[in-house]
């Protein structure tokens, strides 16, 4: 069944990233009117942010994240919520030097999105990722 809204709720574990890949891929197949490049670049941003959630959930008892993608006429709109510890990193961090082995995840996401925000709401981390469609 096709639809404009795709959701997923999982324990924040590296294995759950495969489910996110599949969900974004399915949305792309079901929305041929959207450029595959837009879905591909959104997928990159989504995996980087979700990967960040998973990475920071390591060593904690149980962190759950909820994912929602809405395919709008003019944008791909993603919200990710997780109940892990508060994100204290820098959303506006610069791309690291070429020979650094880490620190590229959120800078990559920021480059690919037209809106990228984070807020702490009670016990939840809320991320919003929006990629505007040019077509």
């Amino acid at each position: 069944m096709t639809g404009d809204r795709y959701t997923l709720r999982r324990a924040a574990h590296p294995a759950c990233l495969a489910d996110l890949h599949e969900l974004v891929a399915r949305a792309g197949v079901e929305h041929p009117e959207v450029s595959p490049t837009d879905f591909m670049l959104l997928e990159v941003a989504v995996i980087e942010v979700a990967g960040n959630v998973v990475k920071h959930a390591r060593g904690t008892a149980s962190v759950t994240f909820a994912f929602e993608l809405r395919v709008l006429p003019d944008a791909l709109d993603v919200r990710i919520e997780d109940d892990g510890t508060e994100f204290t990193g820098e959303l506006a961090a610069q791309m690291p030097d070429e020979y650094d082995e880490s620190g590229r995840g959120l800078p990559i996401a920021r480059e690919l999105l037209h809106e990228f925000t984070y807020e702490r709401a009670g016990a939840l981390n809320r991320w919003r990722l929006l990629r505007a469609l040019c077509g």
Binding site: E43, G51, Y99, S102, R104, I108
Partner: peptide, 16 residues
């Protein structure tokens, strides 16, 4: 089929 920032980091580590 897909490379994320962890994969890029591994390529850099391999390069070094």
């Amino acid at each position: 089929s897909f490379i994320d920032s962890s994969g890029l980091g591994t390529l850099i580590a391999g390069l070094k």
